[in-house]
Design a protein around this nucleic acid. Structure first.
Lengths: 353, 353
DNA sequence: TCCAATTGTCAAACCGGTTTGGACCTCCCC
DNA sequence: GGGGAGGTCCAAACCGGTTTGACAATTGGA
């Protein structure tokens, strides 16, 4: 099953057999056929590791997932994974998964990647506003594509959803529905998507001369959403609408509302982001915003391959639109021909926290 | 940065440098220190691909995920992934992810894996009652661990949850609460866990001399659960309790109940399996069964490594307990000191579908 | 008829490590 | 002083491919 075995059994040299199988045109057609038939018969497959060594490429793309000890940080990534894996495989690349806790370990993992060239390129997810991983990879010249922008001062390839615009649009829609006191359940300000989503929210509020201070930070989980929502709903004046940075947060927040005797979508409007599978089946169905992540995965793979083939990162920056998906949890919009939820909850003085 | 460079710059041979770094004891302590210092200083890391070639091992474990074109089959697997990746990394193994649609492609992927030895071992998930992947790997002598049992006639290493027992216990509890007409929302009978879970349900029903024919098959998604639950709830006599093979199915089923004006946990008791993060935050909180998947991932990694090191598969079979998590969706249990839901819905003649 | 040009093949070098089997030196003991 | 035992170190082979450069055989043109 090694090249040499095959070659001697054919009475040819390794060179000729190798070239015959690789489709070089300096091999006689008859020989090529004979070789191919023999390879097929002997069930020969070139040893990928040997090929990688001589080619000097690992034919592998690495995905480093920031993980807390016990569990991956974001199940949402799974959908992206499928598009990514598929497209990479179609181009002959393997997908290697590495986990790293943010912190010292993370830096070690990335440094090893860049130095040892375990992979030909990397995918970086959950970009942070100031991201040491991006700085490290960019400075070492290692090809990588990020899911999400970052303010790190380097030019790099990325795909990001325009959640800023989506949050602005959702906020405007809430305002149009008559809401005046609107809250935001935000993820960590270190994550770069937090900044964009918040900016969209703040911009819309500012445009309407509304106070955008009903903001609570929370962990990106149902639990985090429930806890933070409880705080937000206890504040006065109580928000009548809440935007959540993820659907999981929103699902937790709705649970908290029920616990307080408030009906999501009736007493308090709420919208999330991600359109996770459970969202349409929540009670009430959760309004949300969607960036098709499987497509994004495919795009990341394509960009990674382009980089490996020498494309320059500047040409591989892409912001994709995020679609608003209005469902019952967000109340009924004026465009639906029904009365907007009108709840002008005493917004006279809106300077207090 | 290559071994040769490092060696010549030190005035030593490749051999000595290699052995010094690998901790062989035929290197003078002074030399070893000198070499280590130089390696550190020059930021030297052995090229992993070269090492793999000469060692004849790929230091990689493959996980082949059965995927539909657009998305991974089961987001639940993500939690398992974290434990798996972590433990593998701790032992110096990489985790390679491959996707394959069940069918021709799947066989090709597995065959390539076994022949080309792209990986040292494989993890097989979503085992089927009659699983060609297991047959293929077992026959080719490739080391692998399965998540879930299979009736394929080969001895192989696996970890499985004892969902059969959990489903039996849950069914018995429903019966103790007074339910007589109990339904089951089942996944594909090809999946091996389907068979065990159903067996547990059927056994408990048989023990109570109840008719276990209120069974509907559905896709393992919220959508599938909603559709199948609608059918089950339209049957007469209507089930007063439903077991679902996954939480996602249960969440879909609860949504269908609400659509019919039925209150989950009050009019119809319901329980799922998996304890996904959204379950405690469903309305009402979803009762479920749990197998700690991150732990299972760690276990799979350990078994895979054991196999690579020569352990025999027969010694690596493990069935882990599955814990019942009773929540409001399942109604209140007698042990809670409250009245069981008593709903002896005319179970006189229970021979009809 | 003779000299290119072309075609088909191969030996050898290379990728960057690990491992084998000595070589050389020193020390110790008889 | 001879011989065995260690302690250090290294040249060379090997892992299994790819690629380079050269060689022999054939073809084509002048």
């Amino acid at each position: 099953m090694s090249l040499k075995t095959l070659a001697t059994s054919l009475g040819l040299s390794k060179t000729t057999v190798s070239r015959a199988l690789d489709g070089y045109d300096d091999v006689a057609p008859a020989t090529r056929e004979r070789v191919k038939a023999a390879a097929q018969a002997m069930n020969y497959t070139p040893n990928p590791i040997a090929r990688r060594l001589s080619r000097g490429a690992s034919e592998t793309v690495a995905l480093v997932v920031p993980a807390e000890p016990g569990r991956f940080y974001e199940p949402v990534l799974v959908e992206m994974l499928s598009g990514l894996g598929e497209t990479l495989a179609a181009h002959g690349y393997h997908l290697m998964l590495m986990t790293a806790r943010p912190g010292e370990e993370e830096e070690k993992v990335y440094r090893r990647l860049a130095v040892a060239r375990t992979a030909d390129a990397a995918i970086v997810v959950r970009t942070r506003v100031n991201d040491p991983r991006i700085a490290l990879l960019a400075e070492s010249g290692f090809p990588f594509v990020a899911l999400g922008r970052s303010e790190t001062p380097h030019r790099f390839a990325f795909i990001d959803g325009d959640a800023q615009e989506a949050f602005r649009a959702a906020t405007e829609r809430f305002i149009a529905q008559g809401h005046r006191r609107i809250g935001l359940l935000a993820t960590s300000p270190k994550l770069s998507f937090t900044r964009y989503r918040r900016a969209g929210f703040s911009a819309a509020m500012a445009d309407a001369a509304l106070n955008a201070d009903a903001v609570a930070e929370c962990a990106p989980t149902e639990e985090g959403g429930a806890a933070a929502a409880a705080i937000l709903l206890a504040s006065a004046p109580r928000p009548t609408a809440i935007l959540c940075m993820t659907d999981r947060i929103a699902i937790g927040a709705m649970s908290a509302m029920r616990g307080l005797g408030l009906r999501p979508g009736v007493d308090v409007a709420i919208i999330g982001h991600d359109n996770i599978p459970a969202s349409p089946y929540a009670d009430p169905p959760l309004a949300t915003m969607e960036l098709p992540l499987a497509d994004v995965g495919r795009g990341l793979a394509q960009k990674a391959i382009a980089l490996i083939n020498g494309a320059s990162p500047e040409d591989l920056c892409e912001v994709r639109p995020v679609q608003l998906i209005w469902r019952a949890s967000a109340g009924l919009a004026p465009s639906d021909g029904l009365l907007p939820i009108k709840r002008d909850s005493s917004m006279g003085g809106e300077n207090e926290t």
